[in-house]
Structure formats: structure tokens, C-alpha cells
């Protein structure tokens, strides 16, 4: 599938193998492009969806464009409810929780994989168990906990929950990468007289920047789209996030699907942009990470 040398069209030698390879390439590209089309469709669909009214959403084929696009869905979304406020909240909560999770998870993973102490696999096990509880089992206990701490209706409850529930996944992902880090780097650093902290911040974090970008993307998506905790722990409109904006259009008996589409469209744009930026970091990661002791 992957061939070491560049495709053969710029080479003058045409032999059987090259032709075969060429056909293989074409087929592979066709396949790849086909999958890419399939993957981009949901976004196109969502855009079209957001320009329809209920009648058109249920009447027309999913990908047919309405004769009179309902741009007013966007106006409706923008003017109804505190979408700007929700937006700011979403950005803040997502960013803070993400930064804390990635940092804390790196600390833990580092201590567990690189440092020597008794009980580290037990501690790792403790974190892994955190993956296993269904979210609905946690709502009633967590609510009463936050109530006792006077943290209900406070963004802190949300941030703490996000960090705690994302820590296990993040640690797990980091784990695979930390195990593969060469030991020599650390040895060299320690001989140079580095402290653990310095080594962690100066060497390990940069070396793992590609996986950090990966976990950051994953955390961002989770936090950005989460709504069960927000709904349960937050009651003031001023602390709610964009996912709640969707509910603004679900009525007792009627649901304004077009407006929901517009809300989803608006809410996907920021993470799309950040995703595109962060996703380049994954590649750059190797360059920055190839620090040799």
C-alpha cells in the first residue's frame, strides 16, 4: 500500500511493475477520495439541513437543497436565547478543562511510566476503572456532592467533572506513547543534572507534543459536545453552554429542526477551525519531538 519511492510518472523507465504500481495507486486514490467524499458529506448535509424548515426536512430527500433556503434559521438562532453567552462559556469551559486534563494526565502518565515507585500499576488501575462507570450512574451522587460543596450552578462543577471523566481516557492514550519514549534521553538529562520537573517540562512535554495535540483534540470534542452534566449541574442561563442552545428549539410538542441544524452548524465551526490547526501539530510533533539527549 505504501511505497517507499515517489510515484513513477516522473521516471522514464516504464516496466511492468511500474504500470502495476500505477494502477494500484490509481485504485487506492479512488478509494481514498471516495471515502473522503463520504466523510465530508455529513457537514454538507448539516448545512443543507440547517437551511430547511420542518416541512422540508421531513419531506425532501436529505441532500436536496430547498428552493428558498431558510437563512432566517440562523437569524432565529442568533437572536433567540443567549447564544453569544453560551458560546463564550463553551470556549472557556472547554479550554480550561482541556488544559487541566492534558497537563494532569501528562503528570500522572509520566510518574507511572517513567518513575520508579511501589504501587504505580495499582494507581494506573485506579485511573482505568474511571473509564468504566456509565455516566447516568454518576448524576445523582455527583449532584449531591456538588450541592454539599456549594458548587451546583457553578462552572467549577462542570470543569471538575470534565477533567475527572476525561483523565482516564487521556492517560490511557498517553500511556502507549510514553512507554515508547527512549530512556536514553532521560538518562542523559539526569547526568546533565536536570531535575525531574525540568525534564518533564523541557524534554518530555515537547517530545510528546504530537500525542498531546491528539489528546487535546479528543478532549476538545468531548467537552464541547457534552450536555448531560451541563443540564444537570447548571441551572442559570448565564453558565450554560452551546449544547444547551439546541434545546432552545425543542418545544413541548414541536421541535424546530432547522434551527437546531443552524445551532449545530454554528457550534461546529470553532472546533473545526481549532481541529484543523491542532491537527497540523500532530505532524509537526515529530520535528519538535526528535530532540536527542
Amino acid at each position: 500500500m505504501k511505497v517507499a519511492t515517489a510515484p513513477g510518472y516522473n521516471s522514464g523507465r516504464v516496466n511492468e511493475r511500474k504500470i502495476l504500481q500505477g494502477t494500484g495507486y490509481t485504485l487506492m486514490y479512488l478509494g481514498l477520495i471516495l471515502v473522503a467524499l463520504v466523510q465530508i458529506f455529513p457537514l454538507v448535509w448539516l448545512l443543507i439541513f440547517s437551511l430547511k424548515n420542518n416541512q422540508e426536512i421531513f419531506n425532501m430527500a436529505p441532500f436536496s437543497i430547498p428552493a428558498h433556503p431558510h437563512w432566517e434559521n440562523y437569524v432565529n438562532v442568533w437572536t433567540n436565547g443567549n447564544i453569544a453567552q453560551y458560546f463564550v462559556n463553551s470556549v472557556l469551559i472547554t479550554a480550561i478543562a482541556l488544559a487541566l486534563t492534558v497537563l494532569l494526565a501528562s503528570f500522572v502518565t509520566y510518574a507511572v511510566t517513567r518513575m520508579r515507585w511501589k504501587g504505580r500499576s495499582f494507581v494506573l488501575g485506579l485511573f482505568m476503572v474511571g473509564l468504566m462507570i456509565p455516566v447516568h450512574s454518576t448524576l445523582i451522587p455527583l449532584f449531591s456532592l456538588f450541592l454539599k460543596l456549594h458548587l451546583t450552578d457553578s462552572p467549577i462543577s462542570i470543569i471538575l467533572s470534565y477533567v475527572a471523566f476525561n483523565l482516564p481516557t487521556t492517560i490511557m492514550i498517553l500511556l502507549g506513547f510514553y512507554y515508547a519514549l527512549p530512556k536514553e534521553v532521560e538518562e542523559a538529562a539526569i547526568i546533565d543534572g536536570c531535575s525531574v520537573n525540568t525534564m518533564f517540562f523541557r524534554i518530555i512535554l515537547p517530545m510528546t507534543s504530537s500525542v498531546l495535540a491528539t489528546t487535546a483534540i479528543i478532549n476538545m470534542i468531548y467537552n464541547w459536545n457534552e450536555f448531560i452534566f451541563v443540564n444537570t449541574f447548571i441551572s442559570s442561563d448565564k453558565y450554560k453552554t452551546l449544547t444547551v442552545g439546541v434545546q432552545n428549539f425543542i418545544g413541548q410538542y414541536t421541535t424546530d429542526w432547522g434551527a437546531i441544524g443552524a445551532t449545530l452548524m454554528i457550534s461546529i465551526l470553532p472546533i473545526l477551525i481549532v481541529f484543523l490547526l491542532l491537527s497540523d501539530r500532530i505532524v509537526e510533533g515529530i520535528a519538535a519531538g526528535s530532540v536527542k539527549g
Binding site: 510518574a111 494507581v123 477533567v163 471523566f165 482516564p168
Partner: peptide, 19 residues
């Protein structure tokens, strides 16, 4: 490195698990 995270999941994940 470990304790802050451990305390956090003890409170937010293990407390619900025990309950």
C-alpha cells in the same frame, strides 16, 4: 504529579462508584 489527579477522580468518579 499523581495526587491532585488521584484526589479528583476519587471524589468525582470513585464516590459515585461506591454510592
Amino acid at each position: 504529579y499523581v495526587l491532585p489527579s488521584l484526589l479528583l477522580i476519587m471524589g468525582i468518579i470513585y464516590m459515585p462508584i461506591v454510592l
